[in-house]
Design a protein around this nucleic acid. Structure first.
Lengths: 193, 193, 193, 193
DNA sequence: GATGAATGAGCATTCATTCAT
DNA sequence: GATGAATGAATGCTCATTCAT
């Protein structure tokens, strides 16, 4: 219980101040314990943050996988739309985790890099293969190349929206989501011609 | 001269270690002076980093403006393509500034946020108006709405590529750029129908 | 049982790391219990170490007394020789206790000093009186002064060997023991002239 | 200046509390500076103590070498006597250095051991060869073996007195010194017969 | 312009100790 | 008897900053 609270506090502090600025005291304060108590649960700061980072990455991965699983029997366009909307919704709800994720991906603390790179690789591969698979199921005649292209383009758009989460106000971001979806619709139409 | 070197060192250290991890000593070491000497040029760490952040943002802004100016008499598709290619090329060349920029935008040190938000606003507004302007010059009949949509979509794609700079290897990123350009071509075709 | 194990572990840790470096955790680890459990047997660290020090001193005292008792009906030279050889043998076998004893005598933790001084006094007095007694039994005509001198000289030599236990390799130390014994033989010869 | 004071304070604190108990704060207090200031002169605690230990060993070595040099043209018995008296006098004057030396030799902090062992070896070798040399100069007919034996015996006695420095009161120790000197006289007489 | 020396504030971590279970 | 959980106090160390030179 306390252990879990510490983990969440670490993520929150990390999302605000980054690794170096997230001090054991700030984390302890958030959990209403003393810094020394953290060491009963985690060997040191590094171990705590390794646990936190793993949690963030896995949680992000699992969430997106769940979304995809839930809409897997729908049309590809609906899949795109759902992934976009639910991902943004998820990250809006859990702003601090998202910020932590973004910081983590963009400027990972030295020592996490290899672990992170491996995770990103796995995530991307899974996402690509899943989306390409769905596409080929729905449009068996589509060439592998076209399916691949559309998927990669979708990923660019997803990354773009991700980047914008923290920069745009709610209404603007909603508009951006619409633009993103209409973009995918347009690209799909073209590809299927 | 020394002042400028300090600024560059600050940016470099910031890009590697983030604000809290970028210490006056590390910066001084990079310039081959002692930490105390930095205070002859900058009142304190905050002022140094404020200067550094301004420099990064302006430098990024100016560069993109230059690109746009240079290709302003070309077709809108060429403009898109050039912005994409040159922006990526620029950021590849100056990895540390890019990293600093990305860190800065995604997890700005507390206290910089209002300044940063203002800058981003200005940049986005300028970018939008410029691109919409170009579009309307080339296609005087296009509706303002359509021009706006295409521009916003372009920005999503740009943001997506930006996010990917640090995550993808060179070859993959080149491929992503191609996909991005072909996307814009497709969207433009549709919009002009 | 556990209480005794804790005592031995305390001595061992003390012999390795000295008082300040011998932590309750290290001691607990050695006994395969948790630090909190030590407090069931000993009120605090100080009490534990007081017990440990008493044990070390008494054990050392008793051992030497036993040696002396065993050879008490032999000639004084044999007594010297036996004390030298058995003392060294004993301390070689129980290196950690010896180290603890040496540390204790040479740099006692503040607070133990008076207790230690008292013990040393008692030990020396006993040793002197015993050896002087033996001498006078064997050589009834010897002056008290001569007996005293020889005894004191023997103690210097014993102390010298003691100091060398940790500094010399086995073979060298064996040689030193021989030298020590031949020294006592020489001194005795002279004294009896 | 400050650097030197820190070194001396470190030695003093070490002599009282041993390595683990000699804290940077206690040392700083003794020099009337703040703990942080120590780090301007010494990289860390280990480096400070390495410097301190080297200083102690060298200072001890140099002092004894000077004594020996000063009396080198005197008779061997005078040499023994002078070494005994001056060594004890020196260590009485500088009690804390002596205590530090004793602690250091008997329970060296892990990491110093190899360095220390090497030093002791060199010191012993030098002492032996020097004394054997003097002996053979004064008594050219003496066998190497005899000279060696007497020297080693002298070292045992020296070690014994050393051990007793902290244990005996002034008057008792003076008496022990006398006994030691008369011992050497007796041994020498015998050896020359 | 530059730095040697110093420091207050803060940080990660350790450690002896406590206490409810 | 033993321990999980917690903590106050201290420890080694870093860092931004100051100031006299």
């Amino acid at each position: 219980m306390t252990k879990e609270k510490i983990l969440k506090a670490a993520i929150n502090q990390y999302s605000i101040h980054n690794y170096h600025g997230a001090t054991m005291k700030k984390i302890a304060d958030e959990v209403n314990i003393k810094p020394a108590s953290i060491y009963f649960f985690y060997k040191n700061k590094e171990e705590l943050f390794l646990a936190a980072f793993k949690w963030i990455l896995e949680s992000h991965f699992n969430y997106i996988r769940n979304i995809v699983d839930e809409v897997s029997n729908q049309s590809i366009l609906t899949i795109y739309q759902t992934i976009i909307q639910k991902t943004i919704a998820y990250h809006r709800e859990r702003q601090n985790e998202t910020n932590a994720y973004i910081s983590l991906v963009n400027s990972p603390p030295v020592g996490i890099k290899p672990f992170l790179h491996d995770h990103m690789q796995r995530f991307d591969t899974w996402m690509e293969q899943t989306l390409i698979g769905k596409m080929q199921t729905e449009y068996p005649d589509i060439s592998k190349e076209k399916a691949m292209r559309l998927t990669k383009q979708f990923l660019i758009i997803m990354d773009g929206l991700f980047w914008e989460i923290n920069l745009y106000e709610k209404e603007e971001l909603d508009k951006q989501m619409e633009y993103a979806i209409s973009m995918m619709a347009c690209l799909l139409r073209e590809e299927l011609k």
